[in-house]
Design a protein around this nucleic acid. Structure first.
Lengths: 200, 200
DNA sequence: GTCTATAGAAGGATAGAC
DNA sequence: GTCTATCCTTCTATAGAC
C-alpha cells in the first residue's frame, strides 16, 4: 500500500529532475531528497540502480507529455490550426519558464544514446509512442494513412530542433519558424488533390 | 611555444569527449588522460575551470563542424542537390559510427542551457555562426535575402531533430524524412515566381 | 519494506615543488 | 609554465539494523 506511493514519488521526482538537469546531472542523493524517500528504497524498488530507475522515469515522463500532445490533437477539428496552437503553446511555456521547460526527455535521450542501452531503448519507445498516437490523430482528421508517419516525424523533429535552438538562444523565434513549417507540412499532407500544392 | 600545443591538445580532447559523453558525463581526469596533459595545466590555461574549458571547447567544435557545412554549401551550384547530399552524408556518418557521431554540441547545449550561462552563450554563438554562414551561402546561390534566415534555421532544426530521433531509434529513417523536408524548404525559397508553389 | 551508515570510486579544485 | 600530491565533495552502491 505504502509501497506503491513511495515508488511513485521516486519516479515522479526522478522524471522531474531528469527533465531539468539531465541524466548525468542528476544524483541519486538529489532524487532521495526530492522524493523524501530513503536511499535504500530506490534499490529496493529498482534493483538495477540508477539505470533502471532512469529508464522507468523516462517512460513516465513520456506518458505525461503524450497526454499533453493528445489534449491538443485527439479531439481537434482543424489540424493546421491545432498544429499552430501546439507550437504557439510550446513557445509560451518556454518564455514563462525562462526556457527551462522543454522536451522532458530530449536531453537524457542524447546523453544515453551511446552509453546506456536500456535507457536508449526507453527514450526510443517514448518517441515512438508519440508518433503512433499522432498518426492515429492525423488519420482520424482525414489524412492519407500513407502520409501520417512522415508528417508526425517531421513535426517532432521540428519541435525538438526548435527546443534546442530556443533554449540556446533564449529566444522563441525558432519555435515560430518551426510552427509555420509544421503547419505547412500538415496542410500539404491533407490536400486531397495533389495539383500544384505538391512537391513541384 | 609548447604552451600553445598543450592548450590545443586539451581543447581537442575536451571537444571530442563533450561530443561523445556530454558535459556532465566528461570528467577532468578523463580529459587529462586523453590529452596527456597534467591536471594543473588545465587550471593554468583555463583559470575558470571546467566551465571555461568547456565553453572554449564548444567554440572549437563549432568551428570544425562549420567547416564541414561550408565544404558542402560554400562552393555549391545546385542548392537542393547540395542539401540532399548534406543530409545523406549525415545519415551515412550515423550508420558508420553506430549512431555515435552526430551534432558535436547538441547534447552539451541541452545539458547546460539552464545551468551554465557562459556555456549556454557559447552554444548559442556556435549555432548562430552556422546560420550566418549558411545564409551567406544561400544568398550567393540566388536565394532572396529575406528568406535565407528562416530556411537556414529550418534546416538546422530538421537535422538536429533528426539526429535525436536517429540516435534514439538507431535508424536513419528520420534523417531521410528530414532531408526531403529540407530540400523542399530550400526549393520553395528559391522559386522566384511565387505562383502555385507558395503557401496555398 | 523502511531507513541509516558507510564503503569505495570519481568528481572538481588547489597548493606548491620544480 | 609543468607536473604531482592532495583536499573535500559527490557519486553509485551495499550491508544490515529495525
Amino acid at each position: 500500500m505504502t509501497e506503491i506511493k513511495t515508488r511513485d514519488r521516486i519516479l515522479d521526482a526522478t522524471a522531474d529532475l531528469l527533465r531539468r538537469k539531465g541524466y548525468n546531472g542528476t544524483g541519486l542523493k538529489e532524487i532521495v531528497k526530492a522524493s523524501e524517500a530513503p536511499l535504500g528504497s530506490i534499490y529496493h524498488h529498482f534493483p538495477g540502480g540508477k539505470e533502471e530507475l532512469g529508464a522507468e522515469a523516462i517512460r513516465i515522463a513520456g506518458r505525461t507529455y503524450n497526454a499533453l500532445i493528445q489534449a491538443f490533437f485527439e479531439s481537434a477539428t482543424d489540424p493546421a490550426l491545432t498544429t499552430q496552437a501546439f507550437f504557439d503553446g510550446a513557445a509560451e511555456v518556454l518564455r514563462v519558464t525562462d526556457y527551462e521547460d522543454a522536451c522532458p526527455i530530449a536531453t537524457v535521450a542524447l546523453e544515453v544514446a551511446s552509453t546506456s542501452e536500456p535507457m536508449r531503448a526507453a527514450s526510443g519507445d517514448v518517441f515512438e509512442s508519440w508518433i503512433t498516437d499522432l498518426c492515429a490523430d492525423f488519420e482520424a482528421l482525414g489524412m492519407d494513412p500513407s502520409k501520417t508517419v512522415d508528417v508526425a516525424i517531421e513535426l517532432l523533429m521540428l519541435i525538438e530542433g526548435a527546443f534546442l535552438l530556443c533554449r540556446a538562444w533564449k529566444d522563441t523565434t525558432p519555435m515560430e519558424i518551426a510552427g509555420r513549417a509544421a503547419v505547412e507540412a500538415v496542410r500539404a499532407a491533407l490536400d486531397r488533390v495533389s495539383g500544384c500544392a505538391g512537391s513541384r
